[in-house]
Simulated scan of single mutants.
Amino acid sequence: MEDVLRGLVLIGSTREGRAGQRVGQWFARTAGERDDLDLSVVDLAEFDFPARYPARATPAMTAFTSQIDRADGFVVVTPEYNRSFPASLKQAIDFAYDEWQAKPVAFVSYGCSCAGLYAVEQLRVVFTELHTVTLRNTVSFNLFDMGPDGGPRDEAVRHAAGPMLDQLVWWGRALRAARRARPYVA
């Protein structure tokens, strides 16, 4: 079990009628077929976060950051809204800081014509500031290409999940070993 990576799939959309839950569940099922990952799914729609950042963390904020702290790597599932990512996702990301550091982050994105890639590019900047390692490979697809299982219909795009997860596991193990050997300095 020491070699198994504790991963977290973070569903970043909270809109009613969203596709994010279906996309996130598809990805979690796909990743769940691997024996080198122990994934949990965190859906931001299930948290009652405050509208404003409070002086003290709320129980929902603490529960969320505890899950981020326990994970060794992340897959962020994000839509693209107006060439960016959802405000709900930014709010949640900002609740944690040290908990993200020195861990890999991968992306599954969806959108219309750009397949969510503008959202991913902006998220890379945010996660770089949090001292994470963002992975080059992504799974990105057009929302109108979504299959009945919540994943892309295009087999080449579906196949992209494997190499991305290979990278997540590699970086996750390497960074976990590094954090254990020497505390990360931000």
Rank of each mutant, 00 (worst) to 15 (best):
V157G: 10
Q101W: 04
V105M: 13
F127K: 05
E129W: 05
R124W: 04
F74G: 02
T132N: 09
P152E: 11
P104W: 12
V133G: 02
C114G: 14
P59R: 05
G150T: 02
Q167V: 05
V77W: 14
L130H: 12
F64H: 12
K90C: 00
G116E: 11
Q101R: 13
E155L: 15
D166S: 03
C112A: 14
Y118K: 07
N142V: 00
S140N: 08
S140A: 15
S113C: 11
Y97C: 10
V76H: 13
G73H: 06
G172V: 08
Q91I: 01
P79F: 04
E80A: 07
L143A: 11
D145K: 14
R136V: 14
N142A: 14
A156T: 00
R70D: 13
K103D: 00
V108C: 13
V139C: 15
P163N: 09
S113M: 14
E121S: 14
R158V: 01
I68L: 14
G73L: 06
A60L: 04
Q101A: 12
E129H: 13
S140K: 03
C114V: 03
D145W: 05
S140H: 10
A160W: 12
V133Q: 03
L135S: 07
T65S: 08
V108Y: 15
M146N: 02
Q122M: 05
Y81T: 03
Y81D: 01
K90I: 00
D69E: 14
V133S: 12
G147R: 08
D145I: 02
R153T: 15
R158Q: 06
A161I: 01
V108R: 15
L89M: 01
V120S: 03
P152M: 11
V77Y: 11
F95I: 08
E121C: 04
Q167C: 10
E155N: 08
A119R: 04
E80R: 12
P79T: 00
N82L: 03
D145M: 05
L135F: 06
A71T: 00
T138Q: 09
H159I: 04
S109L: 09
T132F: 11
F85V: 04
K90V: 01
V157N: 09
D154C: 13
R180L: 02
S84F: 07
E80V: 13
R176A: 14
D166A: 01
A174Y: 10
T62M: 15
T134G: 03
G116S: 03
L168P: 06
D149T: 10
L135T: 09
Y97L: 04
P152L: 09
D149K: 10
A156Q: 14
G151V: 08
W171V: 09
A178K: 15
S66L: 07
L130V: 06
V105G: 13
H159T: 08
A60D: 06
